[in-house]
């Protein structure tokens, strides 16, 4: 790819990357107060990596996010979500009832929502990165 020859693109990408990732985290953990949540945050986080892969090449992106780690994160999000649900069952509630997670039901709800939103975010981000790296990796092979 000739993309990594352009100094302007490289510098701008390096400046943008932290902002994109920080904004993703803001959307992730501010989802209860403003618009957004795990899903949108995951997509934005993934887009940061997509931009990186576009400018610095798929190989460099693979070194930052190895397929093995991505697979782990992809499954980890779903497991975290399900785990929160099962934790509710173990504490005497029904599946995905967060009120029983803490003595104060409101606190339990907030904890549960925060955790499952994090699970959603990680799975979505890993899915976006995986999909892009696979598609872009095919191109390089040919």
């Amino acid at each position: 790819m000739a993309m990594n020859q352009h100094a302007v693109l490289r510098v701008v990408t390096k400046l943008l990357m932290p902002c994109i990732l920080l904004f993703a985290l803001y959307v992730q953990f501010h989802g209860e107060f403003g618009p957004g949540g795990g899903f949108q945050a995951g997509v934005i986080f993934g887009v940061g990596f997509v931009l990186y892969a576009l400018i610095f090449g798929v190989g460099a992106a693979r070194r930052v996010a190895p397929p093995g780690v991505l697979r782990g994160v992809l499954a980890g999000g779903v497991l975290l979500f399900t785990g929160v649900g099962i934790a509710g069952v173990l504490r005497g509630g029904s599946f995905l009832n967060y009120s029983v997670l803490s003595k104060d039901p409101l606190l339990g709800q907030e904890m549960g929502i925060l955790l499952i939103e994090f699970g959603v975010g990680t799975t979505v981000a890993a899915a976006v990165i995986t999909l892009f790296l696979i598609f872009a990796g095919q191109e390089q092979k040919e």
């Binding site: 989802g31 779903v78 979500f81 967060y98």
Partner: peptide
């Protein structure tokens, strides 16, 4: 019941938790 300001999030994550689990 949920105690967070964004109702969309409370519906998605808590009331309709099953749907979101299915979604991911």
């Amino acid at each position: 019941e949920i105690g967070i300001p964004n109702v969309v999030t409370s519906v998605l994550a808590s009331y309709r938790g099953y749907d979101t689990l299915g979604e991911i």
